[in-house]
Computed example of a mutant assay.
Amino acid sequence: MGSTSTLLRQCLALALLTSALTWAAPAEAKPWTAATGAIALAFFAVISLLRHRRVQQLTAQIDEVLHSGRTVRFEKCREGDVAVLANELEKMVARLARATDALQKERGALADSLADVSHQIRTPLTAAQLMLAAIEQEDDPRRRKHQLRQLESQMERISWLVTTLLKIAKVDAGAIRVQANPVNVAQCMRRAASPLETALDLRDVALETDIPLDAAFTGDELWTAEAIENILKNCMEKTPAGGHIRVSACETPLATTVRITDTGPGIAPADLPRIFDRFYRGDEGQPAPSSSEDSAVRLSAAAPEGFGIGLSLAQALISAQGGTLQAANGGHGGAEFTLTFPKLVV
């Protein structure tokens, strides 16, 4: 309505201008002036009406985008400034469609992730509840002490799980601050292996390193150490007693590579494509224990040792620094993890 009124006012102003010019013109030029003004007024009115109709079409199509769907085309507006506006609107609609699809995918992934988190936390919580009931009914001090240690272990597992999930959530949200400083590989390796020294001794697994003292890369030492620690922990859990884990590094003008291998059974071919998937574990489907006073102990023993998020977190932390983490089976058996930190970004 507003644009129609504007069009009428413009036509009226042009008609008044034509009348004024016709009145001021000499007598012999008045017919030509009036005819020229009438033609100009008609041309202006036609062009304005066509543009007004195109704008109305765009308005209707935008309204359809907002209230009905998003598969809207603007082929009818092919020239002029209205066509430029139509093209920009079509780009906006396409971008909004992509954003909507991405949000729907993220919503589905979030729902799946919450279901996985609920499932992973439920197992140790159930074991802890069963342990509490067994401890209350236990009269033997030695058995009670043993069960209390197992309960403490379950609490540590839950605490580690929640902490790791929070870190993964921060990585997904882009909320972690990754430094870009020179990192000495040997020093970073010592930081990563330090928390696992006792566990390695108890499992009789040796840790061997072959890292040049000057090997370095640009990244975040703390987050890289956390990623390597998760990889070492995974290798330690898969390596039998008497085995070893070997860490080597090499530096070239293009990249710094850290390779971690173990003497375990390696990665099953079916597990390789999903080794870094969150909550994925190859040993699933353990039978549920029957109800008895030792059910909590059997539940804890039957469950896989990890939660399936350590390697996922490691890959996320390395990727956040611009590096890559790959998994494969070594040439002589065992798993092989390769961390690459490029020096040149093409």
Rank of each mutant, 00 (worst) to 15 (best):
C188L: 09
V185C: 05
G266N: 01
D294L: 11
G266I: 00
Q326L: 13
F276N: 11
H244V: 02
A199K: 11
E106N: 04
K170N: 14
S194T: 06
A60T: 06
G243F: 08
S19H: 04
E229Q: 03
R298V: 08
H67G: 04
K167V: 07
T164V: 04
Q187K: 06
P182E: 14
D63V: 11
T209D: 01
A302G: 12
F43S: 07
R246Y: 12
L41W: 10
A45W: 15
S300G: 12
H146P: 00
E106G: 02
F276K: 12
G2R: 08
L41P: 00
I231C: 10
E221K: 13
A288I: 06
A215H: 02
A24T: 13
P265E: 13
A42H: 02
T163E: 15
L130Y: 06
D294S: 12
L299E: 00
N234M: 12
A268Q: 07
V178Q: 13
G242D: 09
K105P: 00
A314S: 14
L50G: 06
A133Y: 09
T218P: 02
H244N: 07
K343E: 11
L311C: 14
A134G: 03
D140Q: 13
A40P: 04
E229T: 04
L16I: 02
G174L: 05
A241I: 15
A128V: 01
S248E: 04
S113A: 09
P269W: 03
R191P: 04
V46S: 01
Q56W: 07
R142L: 13
T59P: 00
G266M: 00
Q61V: 15
E305V: 09
C235I: 04
G174K: 00
H332P: 00
L232F: 01
Q315W: 02
G322S: 07
C188I: 05
D271H: 15
A42Y: 06
Q147R: 11
P141G: 10
H146R: 12
T18A: 15
A249S: 13
I168G: 03
E293D: 06
R95I: 07
G2T: 15
E136A: 05
D116N: 07
